[in-house]
Amino acid sequence: MADESGVLVLGDVAAGDLSLTSLELLAAGRGLADSLGQELAIGVFGATLDQPSSQAISHGADKVYAVTHPLLADYQVDVQLVAMEALVKEANPSIVLVARTNQGRELAPRLAFRLGVGLAQDCLEVSVDASSGKLLANRPVYGGNAVAVVSCNYSPQVAAIRPKAYEPLEADASRQGQVVSFPVEIDASQVRCQVVETVKEEAEGIKLEDARVVVSGGRGLGGPEPFSALEDLAKQLGGAVGASRAAVDSGWVPSSYQVGLTGKTITPDLYITVAISGASQHMAGCSGAKVIVAINKDSEANILREARYAVVGDWEQVIPAFAEAVRELVQE
């Protein structure tokens, strides 16, 4: 392909609205498109797309491709890929952005391979190189111990962006944009993966990803029971409970609690870690927290290099007194 131009965001729709991660992608894409002096387009996929299309325009898109097909009404990975590939060929962009969500983890690499190009995976920051006009992507590697800056040798340049790396732009209802309908051809025989059952294991209450306060427990808790004290504490603070992978691997809490590189990315105002050492792979999921607090008996633990406040001590002594004081303060 030649004459590629512009930035194309591959969006997704959740319960009738353009998803939060798509809004984040539009913010990232707007910056790139402005640097290039080119257009920002978004593809939205489904059966009814009026609402997400206007949301996309008020959040920064110049153009919306409403990609429609009855088979796109419910997400199915193989069909979604066919639609995405067709759209990229139609729009012929220079840069494609995908969110590294649970679905994006499959879609972005498979799409890049289908297009025969590279993928800058799990990026925290994307920009345009002023001299070459090429995409520059910063991505954490080695579990977050290092950052690699990569560029793409082939076009289109595809990047997957880590959720919460960008803040959505303010909605501006006066923004103008164009909506283009793009019907795709999909053959039902392209469906290979079938979801036959869905099981929810998430904790009740506030979602971990959305909580303003998160209290997480690690291996040093020594068993599943102490998590009930953390649940109480989180409830007092109007927050949610998370965990390190060591606590998940020990079977103390379900994997939906895991914070980190291979777990959830959280950006609370307050993140309280209890008996967590602060391995880089854990920090990869919480480095966007505004204030980190550590409760750890080891004054040498890495978490003390990441925390704003810390108590060096045994959680068995610290937590009951802390929780009691929190209860009094919150009820005042």
Binding site: I295, V311, Q317, V318, A321, V326
Partner: peptide, 13 residues
């Protein structure tokens, strides 16, 4: 002691 540090932490926050 550790318990008191826990209380101080709450006040600090």
């Amino acid at each position: 002691d550790a318990a008191d540090a826990g209380r101080q932490l709450a006040l600090k926050l």
